[in-house]
Amino acid sequence: MSLYRLLTRYQRFVFGFAILMALAGLVAYSSMARQEDPSFPYRVGILKVVFPGASANQIEKLITEPLEEELAQVEEIKQLETISRDNIAVFTIQLKDRIYATDAAWDRVRRAMERAQREFPDGVSDIELDDRRMDIPTVVLSIMGDDDPIVLADAADEIKQHLLTVPGVSRIEVNGAPEKELVIAADETVLHQLGINRQTIVQHLQQRNALIPGGLINNGDRFIRINTQSDVQELNDLALLPITLPNGQRVPLNALASISIQPREPLAAQTFHNGERAVSLGVITVRGQTDTIAFGEGLRKKLDEIRPMFAPLEIKEAFFQPTYVKARLDGLQ
Rank of each mutant, 00 (worst) to 15 (best):
M1C: 10
S2E: 10
Y4R: 12
Q11H: 11
L23A: 11
A24D: 05
A24G: 11
S30F: 10
Q35V: 10
V50C: 04
P52N: 09
A54R: 05
A56V: 02
N57S: 15
T64F: 07
E69A: 15
L80A: 04
R85D: 13
I93S: 07
D103R: 13
W106V: 07
D107P: 04
A116P: 01
F120H: 09
F120I: 06
S125G: 10
D131N: 15
R132E: 13
D135M: 09
I136L: 12
P137D: 09
P137N: 08
S142C: 01
D146L: 08
D148G: 08
P149F: 01
A153C: 00
A155W: 00
D157N: 10
E158K: 11
K160F: 00
H162T: 03
T165S: 13
V166H: 00
R171S: 12
I172C: 06
G176R: 03
I184L: 04
E188I: 14
E188W: 08
R198K: 14
V202M: 12
Q207R: 15
A210M: 08
P213W: 04
G215C: 10
G215P: 04
I217F: 07
N218F: 07
N219G: 13
D221I: 06
I226C: 03
S230Q: 04
D231K: 15
V232H: 05
L238E: 02
T244G: 00
L245A: 01
L245Y: 01
P246Y: 05
G248R: 05
G248I: 03
Q249W: 00
Q249D: 14
R250I: 11
N254L: 11
A255T: 12
I259K: 01
P263F: 03
P266E: 12
L267N: 06
A268R: 11
A268H: 05
F272N: 11
N274E: 14
N274K: 13
E276Q: 15
A278F: 01
A278R: 04
G288V: 08
Q289H: 13
Q289K: 14
D291K: 09
T292W: 06
F295S: 01
G296F: 01
E297W: 07
E297Y: 12
L299R: 01
L299E: 00
K301N: 14
D304C: 06
L313R: 03
T323L: 15
Y324S: 12
Y324R: 15
G331I: 07
L332H: 10
